[in-house]
């Protein structure tokens, strides 16, 4: 058969995010952790050199993971493997595409490589997920070609407060747009610093035109349930799993709570006897210079 196959269409890129919905994407730094994540029911893993909590602790410049590490993780699991490139670092993204990772996260968790421009994601066959703290930022990333959005939260803190702030910001702005007269949308687009066609799409869909997960600070099953009830379509858990006392049980529990997010009895069951969650950091203690979420333009 000689079918014409169209690869890398936006539908194909955004479609993989559709398949991840209702699931948990877990940060892993070794093949062994990737296997634990997969066995616990993760829908994908994020292959990293260090989890955000350790990036925070180590300081210095955080970069794309070593290709050998990414390949080890790809070899260990059959679920999708994502990896992070620095904001604006299209050469790192090219490397990740050459490695055939399933999604590139252009991530503020790594040290930005360009303080004005994000990667032109339309130029790639591999799909991209990007962070956002509000609707305008999300739509700018989509305009650049992102096929999936995640709210940023504050990575590596184990503190869900910023994840909540960003999800509420996006959902609130979506609701507000829905209340506007069509004649008011151009002005709204200008205020959001986002393209008008995408703003119209948000009004029509009553939501983002791509899948939106929550990230940055989710550490417990109840955190996951909270974000899902606030409108997340799935969650990224970074340090929250492998910095907890019992990663295997914590991973299973967060998966279960994400599926049954609207059933408190099930979330209660999943929350039982997990041991200590990751320690966590008060956001105010980070100071303005310690914030990761402000990276990205």
């Amino acid at each position: 058969m000689a079918e014409v196959k169209d690869t890398a269409t936006f539908r194909v890129k955004a479609g993989l995010a559709e398949m991840l919905k209702g699931g948990v994407i877990m940060d892993v730094v070794t093949a062994e952790q990737a296997r634990i994540a997969e066995a616990a029911g993760a829908v994908a893993v994020m292959a990293l050199e260090r989890v955000p909590a350790d990036i925070r602790a180590a300081g210095g410049v955080a970069r794309m993971a070593d290709p050998t590490k990414i390949e080890e993780i790809q070899g260990a699991v059959t679920i999708p493997v994502m990896a992070k490139a620095r904001i604006g670092h299209f050469a790192e993204a090219q490397v990740l595409e050459a490695l055939e990772v399933d999604y590139v996260d252009e991530s503020e968790v790594l040290t930005p490589a360009d303080e004005s421009n994000h990667i032109d994601k339309w130029a790639f066959n591999v799909p991209f997920v990007c962070g956002a703290t509000n609707l305008g930022e999300a739509l700018r990333r989509i305009a650049e070609g992102a096929a999936m959005i995640r709210t940023k939260g504050e990575a590596g803190t184990g503190n869900v407060v910023e994840a909540v702030r960003h999800m509420r910001a996006i959902q609130g702005e979506v609701r507000r747009l829905g209340s506007l007269d069509p004649a008011e949308l151009p002005s709204a687009a200008k205020a959001l610093q986002a393209p008008l066609d995408l703003v119209r799409m948000v009004v029509e869909k009553r939501g983002l035109p791509v899948v939106n997960f929550s990230a940055g600070g989710i550490a417990t099953p109840a955190d996951a349930a909270l974000m899902m009830q606030l409108g997340a379509e799935g969650v990224f858990v970074g340090s929250g799993i492998f910095k907890s006392e019992d990663p295997e049980r914590t991973a299973n529990a967060i998966v279960e709570a994400t599926t049954h997010f609207d059933d408190p009895a099930r979330v209660a069951g999943a929350s039982r006897d997990l041991g200590a969650a990751m320690a966590g950091i008060e956001i105010a203690a980070l100071g303005d210079d310690g914030l990761i979420q402000t990276r990205g333009w």
Binding site: K5, D6, T7, R11, L16, E100, V101, D102, V126
Partner: peptide
Amino acid sequence: RRNAFGRQVRSFETQI
């Protein structure tokens, strides 16, 4: 056979 057509960069649409 899972992931038979390959990883995501090989995902595609076609007419059948």
